[in-house]
Simulated assay, not measured.
Amino acid sequence: MYLADHTWPELGDRLEGSSTAIVPLGSTEQHGPHLPLATDHLIAEGLATAAAEETGFPRTPTVDIGVSPHHRQFPGTLWVDPPEFRDYVESFTRNLAYHGIDRVVYVNAHGGNVDHLREVGRRLHEDGTMYAIEWMWDESIPELVDDLFERNGPHAGPKETAMITHLAPDLVHPEEFEAARDGGLPDMGDAETMVHGARTFYDAVDNSANGAFGDPTDVTPEKAERLFEAAADQLVRLLEWLDAREFEALMPEPRVV
């Protein structure tokens, strides 16, 4: 159920019987020469929509802009600073608590959001407001990702290319796949920015001239569908697991004495 499609009288009835909500979050940032800036938030919204339709749990509108300053050198990238991002997400999550929601899954598709969503969840958990957890789609199916693609990458590589191929094929530029590979960083092991155990980079452009990591040339529609369905299934399972927990069991343990 998508919240924003309903009237408030309809939601009064629907929310009364629901304690779990789905919040999709992504980014608007460069994804190489072959994928749209919308890649991350399209993936998050697609998975959240599929899970909401399967489970009936309410889904909020998507947070389209995330913590992306490390992609700022590429035209069009938008970002918010971490403190403002955390405060914004925490604020509207507390809105959900006001309406009776006591557990949330942040369906996240942008690595730059991870730490900040976990911090928001910690705050909400610590004061007993609700149980909110961050879920990153590719971390739910790591073996499948490795099985499907020979040279993966953390950003604008084959796994994200596959997901957009499934969700929004008209926005994918397959004629640029080779350019994405050859002008980017197809093998993470070839990066020269780890020196004596220290990360000597801050921005994506320091590692990849065109912003792509990995090799998208072996993406097919069949692999794309398999990847999406596997991740969506994991999300549904997580939501059902979370909804079945007793709220008290999700809250902080009392002080050890």
Score class of each variant (00 low, 15 high):
192 E>Q: 14
20 T>N: 02
257 V>E: 15
239 L>K: 07
130 M>L: 12
157 G>I: 11
50 A>R: 08
21 A>H: 04
104 V>S: 11
117 L>S: 06
131 Y>P: 04
207 N>K: 08
217 T>R: 14
117 L>K: 01
218 D>S: 10
106 Y>I: 15
25 L>N: 05
73 Q>M: 13
88 Y>E: 03
256 V>G: 00
73 Q>P: 08
82 P>C: 09
87 D>F: 09
158 P>S: 08
117 L>F: 05
241 W>R: 07
113 N>D: 12
124 L>P: 04
100 G>C: 05
162 A>D: 06
206 D>V: 05
126 E>S: 05
97 A>I: 06
223 K>E: 09
235 L>N: 01
156 A>M: 03
133 I>D: 05
121 G>T: 02
98 Y>R: 11
77 T>C: 14
80 V>S: 07
171 L>M: 09
161 T>S: 10
242 L>G: 07
63 V>W: 04
145 V>F: 03
216 P>R: 14
151 R>V: 09
147 D>E: 12
256 V>Q: 10
34 H>W: 14
192 E>P: 00
161 T>P: 01
141 I>Q: 04
8 W>Y: 10
8 W>T: 15
208 S>K: 05
54 E>V: 02
257 V>N: 15
85 F>C: 05
31 H>I: 14
68 S>K: 14
244 A>L: 09
30 Q>N: 11
62 T>N: 02
183 G>D: 13
217 T>F: 04
222 E>H: 05
199 R>F: 08
129 T>V: 15
5 D>S: 10
225 E>Y: 01
13 D>Y: 06
233 D>L: 00
199 R>W: 08
73 Q>I: 13
180 A>V: 11
247 F>P: 11
248 E>K: 08
27 S>D: 09
206 D>I: 03
61 P>I: 07
101 I>M: 15
87 D>S: 10
198 A>T: 06
116 H>Q: 09
251 M>H: 03
109 A>S: 15
257 V>Q: 11
169 P>S: 12
49 T>W: 02
22 I>A: 06
71 H>K: 09
97 A>Q: 09
142 P>Q: 08
44 A>V: 10
152 N>F: 04
75 P>V: 10
125 H>I: 01
107 V>I: 09
68 S>Y: 10
137 W>Q: 02
213 F>H: 06
224 A>G: 12
172 V>P: 08
231 A>M: 04
41 H>Y: 09
69 P>Y: 11
239 L>P: 06
183 G>E: 15
163 M>K: 02
75 P>M: 08
184 G>A: 13
198 A>Y: 11
13 D>L: 13
104 V>G: 04
218 D>K: 07
238 L>A: 15
53 E>D: 11
137 W>V: 00
